[in-house]
Design a protein around this nucleic acid. Structure first.
Length: 565
RNA sequence: GCCGACGUAGCUCAGUGGUAGAGCAACUGAUUCGUAAUCAGUAGGCCGGGGGUUCAAGUCCCCCCGUCGGCUCCA
């Protein structure tokens, strides 16, 4: 249906703007796009015209007709129409028999299938114009792309448009500013995050949680340097394969690379002494800050930055231990994602063109990953050629509260770097063996994860994560002393609290705390002060009435300890 | 990096070549109030940076920085 809508859009465009040439027009998640070769970009007004023309075509209910033609006939058809891009596609297709689809006077090269007729499209809307390179190659001509959505019913279209609006409201860049979590500064540089106090608290809470979870699972914290000598990056293959993403510096004639990954230092820890098979597996964990020179155009709030901190670990183990280690990581991911209320799907990425290592190693590594997933009975899809340069990987795509998916966790299997670095252990047989290395992150990058979390919770963090958990406010300044008494009591129990003793009316104070999405407001007036109680107002639930202070304290402590979502 | 749009007060935004504006926030004063905005006043600007056109530039042109929407790439 979506693909058919793309055809109708192309028909409308060519009718309204003759001479516009066709690129391709596939269906995508929730919608479709079509690329057009045209000098000027489409304006909003033109988009509306196209939309109206499409509605007319749909009303006419033109049937989609499939035409089976030979290659020669297809070429002559598109030659006549001067559709150079379509001709390029036809020439690349090996098939001698091609299918075309036609509705009205419009004919397109297309594998199909299509709905029977245009009238079967219940609801659609054109969303935006953008530009894209022909065939995604930046050396090719830029085409004008129109994005649209088509849905099974007008109600579903409305729901989808609402979801887009909801996503916009949750934008972490907007919330990050409103909640005073972080900023960027052109003076500091693009893609470099400045954490404000509340953002730093949030990150600290997540990091503390992670450190404990890692130690529980037998990981050992290590810390590597921010710079390592250039020769080491040459040895690892980063210089050959990853140079364009790295920052370099030189001092006193010595060249250094700023680390874009943490694995080198972790291997140096391993190498610092002779290892026995009895020590393995060794699991080194680091909240490692790395810098990568990302192209300026790809930077995006916290989700794509140039300096970020990974919850990184490298596991060195024997080939026999590999399966159990991968399974252990998957369990770890599952437990952490449950805590934050995410579900997820899995993908395996295989060998890319630019890579190091032997084919046998790649096969062993890929099989190890597949094996572990099969053991766990987990479903996965294959992403051909999308692995890291040193090994294949399992990517975890998590799904947030409004159904969007994000890539955070990744597990990479590596037989190559341990060999390049001459890592070894003495086996049972008294001989030297090369260990296998697993690279893995659970949250991925703190920056990206925090960005995703902000959008997932729409800024309304559960109590255990909220930078300010409780705001205590007085009805009149007569209760200010009691406000501070309550706040100090909460502070003694490690609860993050703010007070509001301004001479404003209580409605105004509540409004401000609401905008800051603070989970609990404690409102105290003369009555509460006299009774040593607090009037509790819970985010999302409203006024809960009076509670004895100690009862409230126990309740919130329990909510924090259980990490209630 | 590439294409396009944008950049004016802390924030959101007006200002179409001729004296830099509003609302919110901030500050000062008054108000002491029971669950989503009390009133009055004050202050706040290298109009992103640099260069050019012009009698005159926030406004037009060029370069740089940054942001946004895409492409490509990625944790």
């Amino acid at each position: 249906m979506r693909h058919s809508t793309a055809h109708i859009m192309a028909q409308a465009v060519q009718e309204l703007y003759p001479g516009t040439k066709l690129g391709i027009g596939p269906a995508i998640e929730n919608g479709f796009y079509y690329d057009f070769d045209r000098l000027q970009p489409f304006s909003d007004a033109e988009l509306e015209n196209i939309e109206q023309r499409m509605a007319q075509i749909i009303k006419q209910d033109l049937p989609f007709r499939k035409l089976e033609v030979g290659k020669e006939e297809a070429i002559s058809t598109f030659n006549q129409k001067k559709e150079a891009y379509k001709l390029e596609l036809i020439n690349e297709l090996g098939d001698t028999q091609l299918s075309l689809y036609q509705q009205g006077d419009f004919i397109d090269l297309c594998r199909g299938p299509h709905i029977p007729s245009a009238g079967k499209i219940p609801a659609f809307k054109l969303l935006s114009v953008a530009v894209a390179y022909w065939r995604g190659n930046e050396n090719n001509k830029m085409l004008q792309r129109i994005y649209g959505t088509a849905q099974a019913s007008p109600a579903q279209l409305k729901q989808y448009l609402n979801q887009l609006a909801e996503a916009k409201k949750r934008d972490h860049r907007k919330l990050g500013q409103e909640l005073d979590l972080f900023s960027f500064s052109p003076e500091a540089g693009a893609g470099l995050v400045i954490y404000h106090p509340k953002g730093a608290i949030l990150r600290g809470i997540i990091e503390d949680y992670e450190k404990r979870e890692h130690i529980k699972r037998g990981y050992q914290p290590v810390i590597g340097p921010q710079l390592l000598k250039l020769d080491l990056w040459k040895k690892s293959g980063h210089y050959d394969n990853y140079r364009e993403n790295m920052y370099f510096t030189e001092i006193e004639g010595q060249k250094y690379g700023i680390k874009p990954m943490n694995c080198l230092a972790h291997m140096l820890v391993y190498k610092s002494k002779l290892r026995s098979y009895r020590e393995l597996p060794l699991r080194y964990f680091e909240l490692g800050t790395v810098y990568r020179h990302e192209k300026s155009g790809v930077l995006h709030g916290l989700l794509r930055v140039r300096g970020f901190t990974q919850d990184d670990a490298h596991i060195l183990c024997t080939p026999e231990q590999l399966n159990a280690e991968i399974v252990g990581i998957i369990d770890f991911v599952q437990q952490v994602m449950d805590t934050f209320g995410f579900s997820y799907t899995l993908e395996i990425s295989t060998r890319p063109d630019k890579s190091i290592g032997s084919d046998e190693d790649w096969e062993r590594a890929t099989n190890a990953l597949i094996n572990a997933l099969e053991c766990k009975g987990l479903a996965y899809t294959i992403n051909q050629g999308d692995g890291a340069f040193y090994g294949p990987k399992i990517d975890v795509k998590l799904k947030d509260a409004i159904g969007r998916s994000w890539q955070c966790a990744t597990i990479q299997c590596d037989f190559t770097l341990p060999e390049r670095f001459d890592l070894c252990y003495i086996g049972k047989d008294g001989k030297r063996h090369t260990p296998v290395m697993l690279h893995r992150v659970i949250l991925g990058a703190m920056e990206r994860f925090i960005g995703v979390l902000i959008e997932h919770y729409a800024g309304a963090f559960p109590v255990w994560l909220a930078p300010v958990q409780v705001k205590v406010m007085s009805i009149t300044n007569e209760q200010d002393d009691y406000v501070h008494k309550v706040a100090n009591k909460l502070l003694e129990h490690d609860i993050r609290v703010e007070t509001d003793t301004s001479p404003e009316k209580i409605g105004f104070k509540i409004k401000e705390a609401r905008l800051q999405k603070i989970p609990y407001m404690l409102i105290v007036g003369a009555k509460e002060k006299a009774d040593v109680t607090v009037a509790v107002r819970k985010r999302g639930a409203g006024d809960l009435g009076g509670l004895e202070f100690d009862v409230f304290l126990q309740q919130i402590k329990q909510e924090i300890n259980q990490k209630v979502n």
